[in-house]
Amino acid sequence: MTAFFIAFALFILFYINTLTNTLCIQKEIPDEKQPKVFRTINVLITILLISSYVEVLFK
């Protein structure tokens, strides 16, 4: 179960980063602000994935 969830989480993070890159290109976000956008989204998605894992683990 853990291996499946880790593989799923990595796929989700990769896909979210692809979507974030598309957002930055579409909205013409300056290059100096892009790392902050990526970091914020990655932290929030990681928190969401960890909380989902904990919920599944203790259910």
Rank of each mutant, 00 (worst) to 15 (best):
S51Q: 06
S52K: 04
L10W: 08
I45W: 05
E28K: 15
F8G: 02
I45Q: 05
K27A: 14
F5M: 12
T46C: 10
F8D: 10
N42Q: 11
F38Y: 14
A9H: 01
C24E: 02
S52V: 05
A9W: 00
L19Q: 15
L19K: 15
Q34E: 15
N42C: 01
K59Q: 14
E32H: 13
L10N: 13
L10T: 13
L57W: 08
T40H: 06
Y15R: 14
I16T: 08
Q34L: 07
K33L: 09
T22I: 10
I47V: 15
F38D: 00
K27C: 08
R39W: 06
V56M: 12
L44M: 10
I25D: 09
F11T: 14
S52R: 04
T18L: 13
E28I: 07
T46M: 07
T20N: 07
S51R: 09
I12T: 14
I12D: 01
K59N: 15
F8H: 10
N42G: 07
Q26W: 14
N17W: 02
L23W: 10
R39I: 12
L44G: 04
T22D: 06
T20K: 04
I25T: 14
T2G: 12
I12G: 01
L10R: 13
A7R: 11
T20H: 03
A7Q: 10
S52P: 02
K36C: 00
T22N: 08
A3H: 02
I12Q: 03
N42W: 00
K27W: 12
K33M: 06
L44W: 06
Y15H: 11
V54F: 11
I25K: 15
I41W: 01
K33F: 08
F58V: 15
L44E: 02
F11E: 05
I47S: 10
L23A: 11
E55S: 14
I41D: 00
Y53V: 03
F38G: 01
I6Q: 09
P35K: 00
N17P: 00
I25N: 11
N21H: 13
L23Q: 04
I6G: 01
T22M: 05
V37T: 09
E32F: 12
T40I: 08
I41Q: 01
V56S: 08
N42V: 01
L10C: 12
I29V: 15
C24P: 00
C24L: 04
N21S: 11
F58G: 02
P35L: 00
L10G: 07
F58R: 13
V54Y: 07
L49Y: 03
V37D: 02
A3L: 05
N17V: 03
L13P: 00
F11L: 13
R39D: 11
Q26M: 07
L57S: 09
Y15C: 04
L23V: 04
P30V: 10
F5E: 05
K59E: 11
V43N: 07
E55L: 14
F11W: 08
F4M: 09
P35A: 00
K36T: 11
L13C: 10
D31T: 04
N17M: 09
L19C: 14
V43M: 09
D31N: 05
L49D: 01
T18V: 10
T20V: 12
C24H: 03
A9S: 15
I6D: 06
F8E: 11
T46V: 09
